[in-house]
Amino acid sequence: MSKKNKALPFFHEYFEEWIELYKVGAVRQVTLQKYYMSHQRIIELVPHLKMNELNRRSYQTLLNRYAVTHEKQTTMDFHHQLKGAILDAVDEGLIDNNPTRKIIIKGKDPRT
């Protein structure tokens, strides 16, 4: 069965499994909580995004939605967490290419 025919998980499901597999026991508790917070934001922003729909356009849309309520640096941190999981998904053959390439980081102006 090719990967195109296989039922692919929602992005938030993959991200949660990725956290459990690669981050639990490998990072400090405070860092792990940040990953879980990112997982919650994915559920809120793109609950129905499937792995096979994850492309540069859908990823940029996700980051833009996140950036509406977060500063640029926070959006960058969110991006870096998601990018780690997405690059592993590329390596695993779940998605064909890296949708995080050449994305634009936006965000609210920092508070004074």
Rank of each mutant, 00 (worst) to 15 (best):
T112V: 15
E71D: 12
S38R: 11
L62N: 00
P9V: 06
E92I: 07
D88S: 06
Y22A: 11
L49K: 03
L21M: 05
H80G: 09
L8G: 07
G25T: 15
S38N: 13
I104S: 09
S2E: 01
F78N: 05
P99T: 01
Y22W: 10
H12I: 15
N98E: 11
P47T: 10
Y36K: 15
I104T: 10
Q81R: 05
I43H: 11
Y36H: 09
G107V: 08
D77P: 09
A7Y: 12
F10P: 00
E92P: 00
G84M: 15
L82E: 03
T100Y: 11
T69D: 15
M51C: 06
T112L: 14
P99H: 08
G93K: 03
I104W: 07
L87G: 02
R65M: 02
A26T: 03
H79P: 06
V90G: 07
H39S: 04
V90L: 05
P47G: 13
Y36V: 15
T112A: 13
E16L: 00
Q40T: 07
R41F: 14
T112S: 14
L45S: 04
K106T: 08
K72P: 10
L49A: 09
A67G: 03
Y66L: 13
R28V: 04
G93M: 13
A85E: 05
N5C: 06
M76N: 01
G107T: 01
G25M: 10
Q29I: 13
V90P: 01
I95V: 08
R57M: 06
R56K: 12
S58D: 13
